[in-house]
Every structure is written in structure tokens, then in C-alpha cells.
């Protein structure tokens, strides 16, 4: 049974023979969960688009107006297709984003997402054929994600789309390096590169997000926290909410700014990484609770195995 306290020399020399498959599987399962949640949401939303709108309308949730039902025709592809600069690409996009094209994309997303954990498992045991299958599947996932992002003018849900793409790029690096590096002899070499890329992106996201807030006076005095919570989709805060009190809002702001800025320290010890990731899970749950951002929770959760793996490899 691998432990988190691996006292090894460096990233490449570390003996992580049991730990790497464990973390690779954890990452694949968490990513698949995140991916399927996103896919199910897209499936519901695409049913509301004009050409399919007869099936079921959706409440818009417009401020001050409730129980409204209407088709989502501002997301109609006939408007968005002008975003595609090249006429040839536009014709391809017309086919890809037709109702049939979108239906195919959603089925492919679901199928390839479900296959991912199995292929990751097989890639550690079955050599070249499974390594090839994993590489092709991750390539397909990457292509499907890019198609979906273009359909939403570059991003549907901002940061969660960015992180989903970063995890996919990490998986692509892992699968690609494994394929090129004779998988029978070095089954986990690619995962080292993939984990490092994903951990770098995840830790950067916390550190940069915290640092830019540290530089802003309205975050240091806690005012920004209350303002953003009031403007959130779940807002405004109730009149007596504790975050309306200046002192407590300042305390809350400083607590998570310092935690975000300190996140690179998670790389120093596996136990620290575990603790940082546990706090991060609570943090993302609070972001979901107040801002309604459920996709952020799952997208970042999928990066935690990579952070823990890098810390366990004593990457210093």
C-alpha cells in the first residue's frame, strides 16, 4: 500500500510505482464525474434551443420576473455563426452545431467520458494497445471540449471551462508521453508529466487569484466580498447575514486570500497537500453555495490527485 510520505530524491527518480496508478485512477474518475455533469447540463440546455424549443421551455430567472418560460433564441447558432471568421470553417460549424451534430457530440462526450477511467486502468497493465486507445480517447475528449467552447463563444462557464481544458491537456500530455515512451518499460512516465502540468495550473489558479485580491484595498478591507456576494446569482445577502458585518467580512477575506496565496506550499509535503486540498474542497463548496458555480467544484476537485501526487513525489 503506498504511503503519502515518500522520501525520494526527485520527480523523475521517485519510486511511485503503486502511488501513480492510484492517483491516475482518482484523477480519471473525478474528471469523468465532472465531465458527465457538464454533459448532462449541456443536454438539457440544447433541448431549449430554437430548433428544438418545442420540446420543453426553461425558466429564465430574470430579475424581478418569475415563472417565465421562453425559448433560448439568443443562443441560436444562426446568430453565433458569424463568429467563425472563415467561410469554409463556418460551413463545417453549421453541420457540427446542427441539432443532429450536437446530439452526436453529446453522445460522444458521454461515451468517451465513461471510457476514460477504464482506459487509464488498462494503460497501466496492458501496454501499447491500451496506451494507444487512451491517447485517442483523450484526443477525442479534447476535440469535443473545444467544439463545445466554440459553441458558447469561447467559454460557457468561465473558469471551470478553463480548468476542464487544462486537465484534459494534462491527460493528453500523460497519454502522449506514455505512448511515445514504450509503455511496457515506463508505464508511468507520462503521468509524471501530466500530473506536473495539472498541478501547476491548479496551484497557479489559487495563488494568482489570491494575489490579485491581496493587491486590492477593497478586498483587504472585506468590502469586495460583501459586494460580490450581493451581486451573485444567489444574492443579495439577507439583511442580518454575518458577512454584512465589516469586521467578519474582513476576517473572511483575509482568511481565504492568505490560504490561496500560501497554496504553493502544498508542494512541500504530501500531508500539507492533503490539508490544502481538503480546505479547497470546502472553499469550492462555499463558492457553489453563494455563487451557484457547481462546475467549479467538480473541475477543481479533479485536479487534487495531481497536486497530492506532486507533493508526494517531493518535488523540490
Amino acid at each position: 500500500m503506498p504511503t503519502l510520505s515518500l522520501q525520494t530524491g526527485n520527480l523523475l527518480a521517485a519510486d511511485l510505482s503503486g502511488f501513480t496508478p492510484l492517483m491516475a485512477m482518482a484523477l480519471a474518475i473525478l474528471f469523468t464525474l465532472s465531465w458527465l455533469i457538464q454533459t448532462a447540463e449541456f443536454a438539457q440546455i440544447f433541448r431549449m434551443l430554437p430548433r428544438n424549443a418545442a420540446s420543453k421551455p426553461m425558466a429564465t430567472g430574470l430579475h424581478m420576473a418569475t415563472n417565465l418560460h421562453q425559448p433560448l433564441d439568443w443562443w441560436d447558432w444562426s446568430l453565433q455563426r458569424a463568429d467563425i471568421p472563415n467561410p469554409t470553417w463556418r460551413r463545417w460549424a453549421d453541420a457540427l452545431y446542427s441539432p443532429t451534430g450536437l446530439r452526436w457530440q453529446l453522445w460522444l462526450r458521454a461515451g468517451s467520458g465513461l471510457a476514460l477511467p477504464w482506459l487509464v486502468y488498462l494503460s497501466f497493465n496492458c501496454g501499447l494497445p491500451s496506451a494507444t486507445a487512451l491517447f485517442l480517447t483523450v484526443g477525442l475528449l479534447l476535440a469535443l471540449q473545444l467544439l463545445m467552447l466554440i459553441r458558447w463563444r469561447g467559454a460557457f462557464n468561465g473558469g471551470s471551462d478553463f480548468m476542464t481544458l487544462m486537465v484534459l491537456l494534462g491527460l493528453f500530455i500523460a497519454a502522449g508521453v506514455n505512448l511515445l515512451s514504450a509503455p511496457n518499460r515506463h508505464p508511468d512516465l507520462g503521468w509524471r508529466a501530466g500530473f506536473a502540468f495539472i498541478a501547476l495550473q491548479a496551484i497557479s489558479s489559487y495563488f494568482l487569484s489570491g494575489s490579485v485580491k491581496l493587491l486590492r484595498p477593497e478586498w483587504r478591507n472585506g468590502r469586495a466580498l460583501t459586494l460580490f456576494l450581493n451581486e451573485a446569482v444567489r444574492g443579495p445577502l439577507p439583511p442580518g447575514h454575518w458577512l454584512r458585518q465589516a469586521g467578519l467580512a474582513r476576517l473572511g477575506s483575509w482568511a481565504f486570500i492568505l490560504w490561496e496565496c500560501a497554496f504553493p506550499l502544498a508542494l512541500l509535503h504530501a500531508e500539507w497537500a492533503l490539508l490544502f486540498c481538503l480546505v479547497a474542497a470546502v472553499f469550492h463548496f462555499l463558492v457553489f453555495w453563494f455563487f451557484g458555480l457547481n462546475r467549479f467544484f467538480w473541475a477543481w476537485l479533479a485536479t487534487f490527485p495531481a497536486i497530492i501526487w506532486c507533493a508526494a513525489a517531493h518535488w523540490n
Partner: peptide, 8 residues
């Protein structure tokens, strides 16, 4: 937390 299409 698992399905939030309308909010998104």
C-alpha cells in the same frame, strides 16, 4: 451541486 443547468 450535481445538475445546475438553469443557473449556469
Amino acid at each position: 451541486l450535481f445538475h445546475n443547468a438553469e443557473t449556469n
